[in-house]
Amino acid sequence: MTQSSLTLGYVPGATPAKWARIWAERQPGVPLKLCAVTAADAAAGVRAGAVDVALLRLPTDTYGLSVIPLYEETTVAVVPTDHLLTATDEITPADLDGEPTLLPLDDVVAWTEAPGNPIDHRPETTEAAIELVAAGLGVLIVPQSLARLYHRRDLTYRPIGGAPNCQVALAFPEGPPSALVDEFTGIVRGRRPGSSRGQAQPAPKRTAREKTLAKQAARAAAGKVARTPGTAKRRRP
């Protein structure tokens, strides 16, 4: 049965708009359905078939999935606009020593030795943690895309030099991909329209010298075939 559409799941902060636009140009008859998923449910959604492919953040449980790393996001600290950490364009982990920090239950920054002093209360979501930052309860460490997604006029953020980056990847079920999944992964990887991974490459064009040498070789071969022993003429002295 031919697949009539493709469903793409994406975690908060991921931006599939560019790839969705290219898909619409190349596959106008096949809808690409965009489905927002939580970071915790993204991989499971692919395994369960709720989405065909997903833009998610690593590390996560990728059992049963094929994963293509795409890009890395800068890790930043979200703070009120009047916070002391806004005095410089970039901060260091040492700048966060002693700072109260918020660690939401959906935290996606894999930083086991993150600086700061986590407060006891853990908000359920990053969006809820943003509200607590605005209330002055602490600093929030997140990928830059999430800081932009939940932007508020009373908050800002600063990149943390030396912090681990956040990896964004494309995930789909293990095994040979369907034609539509293969098409989408090709778009994400920058594959040109009409190209195929298994398509034979055209033979390189020969130079003028190579063509001349080939013709000479062909004539020489034809002369050898035409001559048989005892039939060659002798030249007169």
Score class of each variant (00 low, 15 high):
P173D: 00
D120G: 06
K211P: 01
P59E: 05
Y10Q: 06
G13Y: 02
W23G: 03
V133G: 01
S178E: 04
P59A: 05
A169P: 00
R219Q: 09
E72C: 12
A179S: 10
Q27D: 04
A54I: 09
P104L: 05
S4E: 12
A54S: 14
R227H: 09
R21K: 13
I91G: 03
V11P: 00
I68F: 11
E73W: 10
Q144R: 09
G194F: 02
R153M: 13
L70I: 14
A222C: 05
A48Y: 07
G29C: 01
C166S: 07
G175R: 05
D182F: 07
P177G: 00
A43G: 01
V181Y: 08
K205N: 11
R153D: 15
P80V: 11
L155V: 13
R234K: 12
G223H: 09
A200F: 13
V225I: 15
S178Q: 05
A221N: 11
R227I: 10
R57S: 11
V108T: 11
R234P: 03
E174F: 02
R235G: 15
E124M: 14
T156D: 05
H151P: 11
I187P: 01
D154Q: 14
A232G: 14
G13D: 02
G98V: 03
E124R: 14
S4Q: 12
A128Y: 07
T156I: 06
A232C: 13
P16N: 04
S196G: 14
P80A: 08
A169M: 01
L56T: 04
V181W: 06
H121F: 09
V108K: 02
T81F: 14
Y157F: 15
I141D: 01
A217W: 03
T15A: 11
R153C: 10
V109S: 05
D82T: 04
D107F: 06
L55Y: 06
V78H: 04
R219G: 02
A179Y: 02
E25P: 04
V76R: 01
A208T: 13
G230I: 06
H151E: 15
A226F: 05
A208S: 13
P100I: 01
K205C: 08
R189K: 15
V181N: 03
G49L: 00
I141Q: 05
A134V: 07
G162Y: 06
T88Q: 09
L32V: 03
D154A: 14
Q201E: 15
I130V: 15
T112H: 13
G186L: 01
T207W: 07
E99A: 13
P123C: 06
P93D: 00
V67I: 11
P118K: 04
T101H: 07
P229G: 05
T185E: 08
V11S: 04
V51N: 04
A203C: 07
K233W: 12
P176Y: 12
P93E: 00
E131K: 11
D106K: 09
P123Q: 07
A44C: 07
A36I: 10
